[in-house]
Amino acid sequence: MLPQRDTCTLVDLLDRLLEKGLVLRADLVITVAGVPLIGLNLVATLAEMETMLKYGIFEGLDKTTREWALEHKQGIPFLEGEKPLDKAYGSYRFDRGKKTAWKYGYIYVTDHRIFAWDKGLRCFLFEFRPEEIKAVKVEKRLYEKKERDELCFLFQDETSLFLHVEKIRDFKKSIEMVSSSSEV
């Protein structure tokens, strides 16, 4: 048996990153209103993170910080005038005669196109325009022996792309909005 990293869940990572590792002494570390930095050191699980979201702990964005972040942010390469409509973290797999493995990334839907962008490598994982889509539908498919909803794209060249994101039907609606506006 080989150790796997690609089946790691976010909670596997959170438990390590938020509660473990090297910790500096308090007088050296920046805190925001008593919360160690990003408010996340206190978070142990996704459920707790949701609670924090509910109580707005992540929302106290300081204006200067925001400006600073914007100034330094190397953004997603949107085209001029391109409007982002939806974004989701999820997995995708191509079927171009040969099936590829499931890969993960942030998938963007804009008024011009649908793409996945790797921020670290600064490259597109995939990119296509609504005109290239022949059909898109939500299908029940097997993943790890269990049935789940996947968003299936069939392209004009008969290749396919399968997407799995959390709010799959909302995501599909965003894609349909782009597709219908491109038909007009």
Binding site: L10, L13, L14, L17, L18, I30, V32, V35, L37, I38, G39, L40, M49, E50, L53, I57, F58, E59, G60, L61, D62, T64, T65, R66, W68, A69, K87, Y89, Y106, K119
Partner: peptide
């Protein structure tokens, strides 16, 4: 900056992690 912001939402928090 020395006044770092909180993540703007769950999505951004996950992205940072």
């Amino acid at each position: 900056s020395d006044s770092p912001g909180l993540a703007a939402g769950e999505g951004e928090a996950m992205e940072w992690i």
